[in-house]
Amino acid sequence: MGLYAVTAVGRDRPGAIADVTRALADFGAIGDSAAITLGGRFAMTLVASAPDGADRLREGLAHRLPGLTVTVADLASRGPDAPERLAYVLTVHGPSRAPTLPVLTGLLAEAGCDITSLTTRAPGELLVAVADVGIPAPADVASLMRRVATALDGYRVALHPAEPVVM
């Protein structure tokens, strides 16, 4: 049984997710997935296991999903467990300027932070980036904040612990 990363992108419409999941379920089993509308287009990423190879899965999905651009990539077996990290939410907003995102993510990478989810929105002249960030423990959060705030002068930067409600 192979493990694959599948992406599907195309015009957003009711039923797009249903079509993708139905097609994929016919070839294998769906694991993690995320779907979002980006710039008015539907985009979905899934991890799926299937008995046949990537080429067969790609061909089958392309046939079943003619309006969508589909990619299939082999996933290596799961790597070693990540070291312990502290869960934080990082929010940055300010003027919409091109280098903001690479600067922000570069700083996080330098600090050994793991971005587990990232959303950016750019309505009009505003850029908003919100990231779920795993910071290596023990974390020097203040230092990280200073570096981000210095590099992104003119932007509002907020970093607060993720607060899951455990029942």
């Binding site: 929010t91 990232l118 919100v130």
Partner: peptide, 14 residues
């Protein structure tokens, strides 16, 4: 702004 209090990366919506 309310954006500063978004509870996670998937909590901002267009």
């Amino acid at each position: 702004l309310f954006l500063d209090r978004a509870i996670g990366a998937r909590a901002v919506h267009g």
